[in-house]
Design a protein around this nucleic acid. Structure first.
Lengths: 251, 251
DNA sequence: ATAAACCTTTACGCAACGTCAATGTAAATA
DNA sequence: TATTTACATTGACGTTGCGTAAAGGTTTAT
């Protein structure tokens, strides 16, 4: 079976431009060129193209693909390993970006929607002291001293607007959660919104947001009766519901 | 205070080329141009540059930054929201890429290091039946029918090499885990390697890998005594240790 | 006076094609 | 057979955010 550019393109789902480009850079050359100048591809080119597309889907760049396909099997593995590390790094970067973007969204939100002054230092101190009395030791054991202290530092450094935003967030979480709970589906849009809000909330206190920490906290919510009491106050089962939502959300 | 390109560049940590480029595209223009043609920046330009760099760190592209900075606060938020969605999508894509790359690494590994033929169909069927008897109903309840069936289908479609790879992986996990356990630190390199291996293992059975599912499974390991029995066989506490490692790893 | 340090504009290069443009060829239809 | 239609070719510019010369003018220091 022989193919022209368009035939091959349709077969493999790429544009003719792409095939010409691959020819140009020497990645995939036609088996022969017609007298009229048409590129003609054979079966082995089809196979090679499949391989190329496979690696391309993994995000490998064309130069590297060329190298991989030139040496039989030896480099393929290490190339993939290296590529994998790059991907992981990239993902972590993006993860950080997302959290930072969310923080700054929350901040601009705060700036625009509220600005009435109140003395709230007392509130913060109060909150800290209460928190310490209630959960201090165990949380310190669980998440490490540094984390807790950084978290506390973050709390003390909250601006008034931030603080109001945080309390507003808490209220919003409760509201949305209550509504979501009636649906009974932790994967539904409302429940997911609650998880989302919860993440934003977390970003105010934790020095670094991480997926597993978030999931871990969700886990703790059902394990610790004081947390369940807080969430189940109005509707028993809400803490568990939130945990499920977060576990589904955590991404 | 007035700055030339280089001064401003040093102050803000960008190259002079960058400043000229920003001038060129109209993102940051000097307050005035000297008679000799030198660009001169003032304090307000310094501030604007800070803002530019802030958004740049969030991965926003220069065109969008320009728009954000032109309208006061209104668009900023929605622009960030949109940007956030893009980031999330990108991260999810990369997440998938990583898993696929890992699968194909495992496969090429299998191809190169093992190829002795055995009849193993019986093993697979056996494994399935056993699995069904032991965990069938509960797992089906927990993860949904389709997922389980797809998982089973995947198992049946494992090639011999894959199968051997899987069993090898299981052995390796146990080995590494046992060693890691002696260190007692689930965040250590060995424990993280175990979590990594566990993820690879999972990739063989689950149609789609996801962080929260991995974390969820880890959770289940300590909740379900049959799993704990399997892991704690040699060293009590191993299942819990693995869970912690995975929760830390899950990224 | 001369060199060192700084400034300017112009322009190519990168990755992987998309998208015309201008033109030639093959297959299908009237 | 003549014409339309579909498909082929090469060439070249545009995309993003600058890095990196090149070629030349200005200021400052020695």
């Amino acid at each position: 079976m022989e193919y022209t550019v368009q035939k091959l393109g349709q077969l493999a789902g790429v544009s003719t431009r792409t095939l010409r480009y691959y020819d140009q850079i020497g990645l995939l050359q036609p088996s022969r060129v017609n007298s009229n100048g048409y590129r003609i591809y054979g079966q082995s080119e089809v196979n090679r193209l499949q391989q190329i597309l496979f690696y391309k889907e993994l995000g490998v760049n064309l130069d590297t693909i060329k190298e991989i396909l030139s040496s039989p099997t030896f480099d393929a593995e290490s190339a993939l390993r290296e590529h994998r590390l790059k991907l992981i790094e990239k993902r972590n970067q993006i993860e950080t970006l997302i959290c930072n973007v969310e923080k700054s969204i929350a901040q601009t939100e705060g700036r625009t929607t509220m600005s009435n002054k109140e003395k709230f230092e007392g509130f913060k101190q109060n909150l800290l002291a209460e928190n310490e009395k209630k959960y201090g030791k165990e949380i310190r054991d669980k998440y490490g001293k540094e984390n807790v202290e950084q978290s506390n530092t973050k709390l003390m450094n909250l601006s008034e607007e931030d603080y109001q935003k945080v309390t507003a967030l808490e209220q919003q979480i409760r509201d949305v959660l209550a509504q979501a709970f009636t649906s009974g589906n932790p994967a539904g849009p409302l429940a997911q919104q609650a998880a989302e809000l919860h993440k934003q909330w977390l970003c105010y206190f934790w020095p670094t947001y991480s997926i597993e920490a978030h999931a871990g906290l969700a886990q703790m919510y059902v394990g610790d009766e004081r947390f369940t009491a807080y969430y189940d106050k109005d509707q028993p089962g809400t803490a568990e519901f939130l945990r499920d939502a977060i576990l589904i959300y955590t991404k």
